[in-house]
């Protein structure tokens, strides 16, 4: 088989995979313009017969989008900034320096991956309550900004690959420890920063459980993830309204992804060396 034929087969297979991969998203977009009847009776047809905007109007009002969108943006942006700050600093120290107890700290951070979040919500809930941050966006931001092992490992792995000479040259020039980190190392880690922003922003954006339980007494402090559940009624679910709400809530995530996809792709493709 010629090389051209092989490439063609590969391209066909990849195209099929992409179509399968992207179908659910296209289906949600298509459903958001359909009537409920059409959604159930002709679910696989991607072009709506009766094109309707009603689902978007309902979605905006029912899910309290105007309020929840602002809350979600504040929550996701601040949490991402704090997580970036903590993870990059932890990763830098763990990736570049040897000190007593380093392995123990590393293992402790890694161990957090193995702990299901549902087991920790009661102590977290109590802690936030005792700090007086219940029903406030601040409490929510604090909870989602804790140490994340994946991000620390990403930064640590990245920083450990940077040659020592970078730091040595900076020290020779008289740079201090914070200056080396902030002005040399951090700018070099843009691919990891981009990846962490995408991962964490999306995670906060879609978060449901903590935004629900930490704002029990203040529905006005809730986020979109909670608002989306407004479409699940006692006896019925408004599927087309939910689809429209999902499309609206996807837009900001897509913007963030497009902004940072260059760096994200590099990390995902194994180009962590920058």
């Amino acid at each position: 088989m010629s090389r051209r034929a092989k490439t063609l087969i590969l391209q066909i297979v990849m195209t099929i995979l992409v179509i399968i991969w992207i179908f659910p998203i296209v289906w949600v977009v298509s459903t958001s313009f359909k009537t409920t009847t059409e959604m159930f009776m002709d679910p696989l047809n991607l072009i709506p017969k009766e094109f309707t905007w009603d689902n978007y109007v309902r979605a905006w009002n029912l899910a309290n989008f105007s309020k929840y969108l602002t809350n979600t943006i504040i929550y996701s942006v601040f949490s991402t900034i704090i997580v970036l700050f903590i993870s990059s600093m932890s990763g830098y120290v763990l990736g570049r320096y040897d000190f007593p107890g380093k392995k123990l700290i590393f293992v402790a951070i890694l161990a957090t991956i193995l702990m299901p979040s549902r087991y920790t919500f009661i102590p977290i809930f109590d802690l936030v309550r005792k700090m007086g941050l219940l029903n406030k966006l601040g409490g929510l931001i604090l909870v989602s900004s804790g140490v994340n092992a994946l991000y620390v490992m990403l930064f640590s792995g990245y920083f450990s690959t940077i040659p020592k000479s970078f730091e040595e040259a900076a020290i020779m020039e008289g740079a201090t420890f914070p200056q080396i980190f902030l002005k040399i190392m951090l700018p070099l880690s843009k691919p990891v920063i981009g990846t962490v922003i995408i991962f964490h922003f999306v995670s906060c954006w879609n978060d449901f459980f903590f935004p629900l339980i930490l704002t029990l007494g203040n529905p006005n402090a809730r986020t979109l993830g909670v608002g989306l559940y407004a479409f699940y009624g006692e006896y019925t679910t408004d599927w087309t309204g939910l689809a429209a709400a999902l499309v609206i809530s996807m837009v900001p995530i897509l913007i963030v992804f497009l902004m940072f996809q260059k760096y994200f792709m590099r990390v995902m493709a194994g180009g962590i060396k920058g």
């Binding site: 009661i122 309550r129 029903n135 629900l212 339980i213 007494g217 529905p219 559940y229 407004a230």
Partner: peptide, 20 residues
């Protein structure tokens, strides 16, 4: 204040735990 039924019991339990 409507909360989806699948989460209702947990929400109520936590509300009483918090006192709010």
């Amino acid at each position: 204040d409507s909360v989806v039924q699948s989460q209702y019991d947990q929400v109520l339990s936590l509300a009483f735990r918090s006192g709010d």
